[in-house]
Design a protein around this nucleic acid. Structure first.
Lengths: 126, 126
DNA sequence: TTCCAACTGCGGTATTTTCCGCAGATGAGA
DNA sequence: TCTCATCTGCGGAAAATACCGCAGTTGGAA
């Protein structure tokens, strides 16, 4: 069960997006400013937990996510549905549809979209 | 921005459901066993953060959620969509639809369900 | 009125999270 | 080869989290 703290998520999320980065590169991608030192601490934690792999290139390490976003997503998703919809996916979806004010056409379109592209997740670099 | 830790969420979620409870009553509603003392610590934290109000009835305090579940939901939801779908609600929905393997009929049904009952959340007290 | 279970405030501890600085290693260019 | 900016490992510290026990107060039944 892949569970991340806020800081961990900030970091690994970038790796999901970008693929393979050094601590310094991650620093550049971060929305919020964090010292390089701190980033490396977080990277070490993620490494220890087995969520990352890394390899040395030149004098720097490049880090890469080993844990896939799906796994973390499922955990976070379950938590959300459990907490706010008593575990009912239906209630959750109904709520979202209403919240986003989706028409029938838009809905069916989303469905087709999902079918066409069965990997709509954090990455898409072919 | 209403953000809760795991333990805090466990507690306030019960209050969203049940309305107004004492520490002891919360203890009874908890899935996981936590000492009454610990529950009170969490309640105090939530109180300090302004998420709860309380009033004395008899010798016990009754706690009530001040922060509404919608607010917390929105925060958690945004976090989820941002982290895993780059902020795209569409991508998120498409993914869910596929994940749950919903037919067109089921989808339209969900939409009707949402319209009929425009407060699909944890509570509904007018 | 006395007594007791129930409840509170307070203080405390272990763990996790978040963050940082420093000393030393290292690769690339002068 | 020497220099230096860059990167690392290590250690540590402050804050938040998650828990709990104890001494003392109190409402209400006997």
């Amino acid at each position: 069960m892949a569970k991340f703290t806020a800081a961990e998520l900030e970091v690994i999320e970038i790796l999901w997006r970008e693929g393979e980065l050094s601590a310094t590169q991650i620093e550049e991608h971060l929305a919020r400013p964090i010292t390089n030192s701190s980033i490396r601490s977080i990277l070490t934690i993620l490494l220890d937990k087995g969520h990352l792999s890394r390899r040395k290139v030149g004098k720097a390490f490049l880090y890469k996510a080993k844990t896939r976003p799906e796994s973390a997503f499922t955990t976070a998703y379950r938590r959300l549905v459990d907490a706010f919809f008593r575990g009912s996916t239906e209630a959750f979806l109904a709520h979202l549809i209403e919240r986003e004010n989706l028409s029938e056409a838009e809905l069916l379109n989303l469905k087709r979209l999902g079918e066409r592209n069965p990997e709509g997740k954090g990455k898409n670099k072919s």
